[in-house]
Amino acid sequence: MALNKLWQIMWIKRVLDIVLTLIATVCLSPFLFITYLLVKLSSKGPALYWSKRVGQQNKLFSMPKFRSMCVGTPQIATHLMNQQADPNAFLTPVGSFIRKTSLDELPQLWSVLKGDMSVVGPRPALFNQDDLIALRTEKNVHTLKPGITGWAQVNGRDEIPIPQKVALDEYYLKHQSIWLDIKIICMTVIKVIRRDNITH
């Protein structure tokens, strides 16, 4: 992709990120408030959980989510936790609900406004997902800003193995455009409504 075209996409993408995030924050403010209360009143601990994530160029940042797990839950990927224990055992009383509805993801709008994330991009890896980080770096996916949703998210989410996930991330890297972003956003809305590929 030509450098000038890439810079143009990045500039338009950042403007769209800010505009869409501000609109979403206003429209979703009742859900943000209600979810905050549900989490706060249903279990001990803060309503927000700050997760250490890998951002653009593999720089670490703190990403907020509404807490769906009990305080003290190991900070590891779901597929790794499945090998050690039942992830559902760590869920708060409302944890399953806010995950199924993706309400736990709403605070990430702050990360988009701050510039740590984009609306669309590869989902940010946990700081200890060494296999995912290494493969993304090998394929230059680490040069992208992570997103709330992405091409891999709408094509399988946590249900697909890491090599396939990175292949989808690489496809997005090579074919990124504003129109592809709009397509991914529309597909995300449909999947959230249908609750497709949502990890409980």
Score class of each variant (00 low, 15 high):
Val71Phe: 00
Gln75Ile: 10
Pro46Trp: 01
Pro46Cys: 02
Gln108Val: 05
Cys70Met: 02
Val71Asp: 00
Ala89Ser: 15
Lys114Trp: 09
Pro124Ala: 14
His79Ser: 13
Ile98Phe: 06
Gln84Leu: 14
Thr35Arg: 06
Leu38Arg: 02
Ile34Arg: 01
Val120Asp: 08
Pro93Arg: 02
Ala85Leu: 11
Gln57Thr: 06
Lys59Gln: 14
Phe66Gly: 05
Ser96Asn: 14
Ala85Ser: 15
Pro93Leu: 04
Tyr36Phe: 15
Lys59Arg: 14
Phe90Pro: 02
Pro93Tyr: 06
Lys65Cys: 08
Leu109Asn: 07
Trp50Glu: 01
Phe127Met: 11
Leu132Thr: 12
Leu132Glu: 05
Val71Met: 02
Phe90Ile: 03
Pro93Cys: 06
Lys114Met: 08
Leu109Lys: 05
Ser42Ala: 06
Phe66Arg: 04
Leu135Ser: 06
Asp130Leu: 12
Leu126Met: 15
Ala47Trp: 02
Leu91Gly: 03
Asn82Val: 09
Ile98Arg: 05
Ser111Trp: 12
Leu109Asp: 07
Ile34Lys: 02
Asp116His: 15
Leu80Tyr: 03
Lys65Gly: 05
Ser118His: 13
Ala77Leu: 09
Asn88Tyr: 01
Ala125Asp: 15
Ala134Glu: 13
Ser111Asp: 12
Asp104Leu: 05
Asp131Pro: 13
Tyr49Val: 02
Gly115Lys: 08
Ile34Pro: 03
Arg123Ile: 15
Leu103Ser: 07
Lys44Arg: 10
Ser62Cys: 05
Pro107Asn: 03
Lys44Met: 00
Gly72Arg: 01
Ala89Arg: 11
Val112Ile: 15
Thr35Met: 06
Thr78Ser: 08
Tyr49His: 11
Lys40His: 12
Thr92Lys: 08
Lys52Met: 08
Ser42Trp: 00
Ile34Thr: 14
Arg67Lys: 08
Lys65Trp: 07
Ser42Leu: 01
Pro93Ala: 07
Val119His: 07
Gln56Ser: 04
Leu37Cys: 13
Lys44Ser: 02
Asn128His: 14
Cys70Tyr: 00
Cys70Lys: 02
Leu135His: 09
Thr101Val: 10
Asp104Pro: 10
Lys44Pro: 00
Pro74Trp: 01
Asn128Asp: 15
Ser62Val: 06
Arg99Asn: 08
Val112Glu: 03
Leu106Glu: 04
Gly121His: 14
Pro122His: 11
Ala125Val: 03
Ser68Glu: 00
Glu105Phe: 11
Ile133Asp: 08
